[in-house]
Amino acid sequence: MSTAARTPLALRIVADDLPGRACGGYENVHVAVQRGREPEGAVPGDAAEAAWEFTVDTVLAPDGTRDFRGPHVHGRRGARFLYLTWGEWPPGGTFTMFRRAKLFLDDLPAPAVEGGAAEARLGLTDACGLPLCAAVRPPRVRWTTR
């Protein structure tokens, strides 16, 4: 794929219903979007809301399907996703990941991709009161055009 065929897609993720600073035996819980292997924009687990904004690139694959690229994008072609990573982050310490949630980019509505901007909204506490993890698909996450 040619880099000339890349089109920027502005993404915004907005989350509420965070599980708390202490939950599931963890303390100083924070959630972040994962950029490469690192957490970015960590938010305390007791915040009223968490929001992240960044850009990914869309490209046209040789078979005519859309694909996604960039430092926030993970997974293989046809199954790309974003990670929300949960970790303990004690004062003066380092972020230690203990679970992650995957937001799949193939769930993005076509008009949002074509329009160049999309927003995801979701709650971050699972049915057991713990940090949301694993595959997060609609209707648990709601993607819209921005």
Rank of each mutant, 00 (worst) to 15 (best):
T3F: 13
A4M: 09
R6K: 15
P8I: 12
P8Q: 11
L9M: 13
L9D: 10
A10R: 15
R12N: 12
R12E: 15
R12V: 14
R12L: 13
V14D: 08
V14M: 04
V14G: 00
A15L: 10
D16T: 15
D16S: 15
D16Q: 13
D17W: 01
P19L: 07
P19A: 06
G20S: 06
G20M: 04
G20D: 05
R21A: 15
C23K: 05
Y26R: 13
E27N: 09
E27F: 08
E27C: 04
N28R: 10
N28K: 06
H30C: 05
A32R: 02
Q34H: 02
R35I: 00
G36D: 09
E38T: 09
P39E: 03
P39S: 04
E40F: 11
G41C: 05
A42K: 12
A42C: 10
V43C: 13
P44W: 02
P44N: 05
G45E: 04
G45I: 05
D46L: 03
D46F: 01
A47H: 02
A48N: 11
E49Q: 15
A50H: 03
W52G: 00
F54W: 12
T55G: 00
V56F: 04
D57R: 08
L60A: 09
L60T: 15
P62A: 13
D63C: 06
T65I: 02
R66F: 08
D67S: 13
F68W: 11
G70V: 07
G70H: 10
P71K: 03
P71G: 08
H72E: 11
V73K: 01
V73P: 04
H74T: 06
G75N: 08
G75A: 09
R76K: 15
A79M: 06
A79Q: 13
A79V: 06
A79F: 08
R80K: 14
R80W: 00
L82M: 05
L84A: 00
L84P: 01
L84C: 00
G87Q: 04
G87Y: 02
W89M: 12
P90L: 07
P91I: 07
P91L: 09
G93I: 06
T94L: 15
T94F: 14
T94W: 12
F95M: 06
M97C: 12
F98R: 07
R99S: 15
R100H: 07
R100K: 11
R100Y: 03
A101H: 08
K102C: 08
F104T: 00
L105W: 00
D107G: 03
D107Q: 07
D107L: 00
A110M: 10
A110V: 13
A112C: 13
A112Q: 07
A112Y: 08
A112E: 10
E114N: 14
E114I: 13
E114P: 10
A117P: 12
A118D: 09
E119H: 05
E119I: 10
R121V: 09
G123V: 04
G123Y: 02
T125C: 01
T125N: 02
D126K: 01
D126T: 01
D126M: 00
A127L: 08
A127R: 15
C133R: 15
A134I: 00
A134F: 10
R137Q: 08
R140I: 05
R140D: 07
V141G: 03
V141M: 02
R142M: 08
W143M: 03
T144H: 01
T144M: 01
R146C: 06
